[in-house]
Amino acid sequence: MAEENRAEQMLRLQQAIAEHAHEKGAVMVLLQAAQSIFGHVPQDVQQMIADATGASLSEVYGVATFYAQFSLEPGGEHEIGVCLGTACYVKGSQKLLDKLSELLAVAPGKTTADAKFTLKATRCLGACGLAPVLMVDDEVYGRLVPEDVPGILAKYLGQ
């Protein structure tokens, strides 16, 4: 991504810091802001949050690594999350994950070599009525069988 983009992102982080740094429990709030702005939480950003809240860098790092939502590394262009909640699991979502893993040649939790997709196993998405479910970015696909997987991938490869 371009450099001016990064400057813009920094500006948005500065705004979030100005708004929330004084609140109780600000470290979490700011890490969440950073995750949504940058898509991950790089070290210089952790340092900024530490400076702004008076926490140490190790505390911020400790929080960032505790929660599954924060990642320290940038992800792929699209994030695929296969629900491995109970309702989806008993309806065979593991097979969806295996199929994706095979087609993308990437292990769950990792990003493809071309940085196109990050494959993840997620917790219940709250759409259990549609089980088994997977999510690509914000789009939810439900009532799936492994044979549906190539068609879904094709949608994102086309662009």
């Binding site: 109780k24 429990g25 600000a26 470290v27 979490m28 709030v29 890490l31 969440q32 809240t53 926490a55 505390e59 929080v63 505790f66 929660y67 599954a68 939502q69 924060f70 917790r123």
Partner: peptide, 22 residues
């Protein structure tokens, strides 16, 4: 306050630690 993907935060003392930003 938003969680960030940790099941144990449903436990009451963990939940409060999380709201405190820890």
């Amino acid at each position: 306050r938003l969680g960030a993907g940790a099941f144990v935060c449903g436990e009451e003392t963990a939940l409060m630690a999380s709201i405190e930003g820890r």
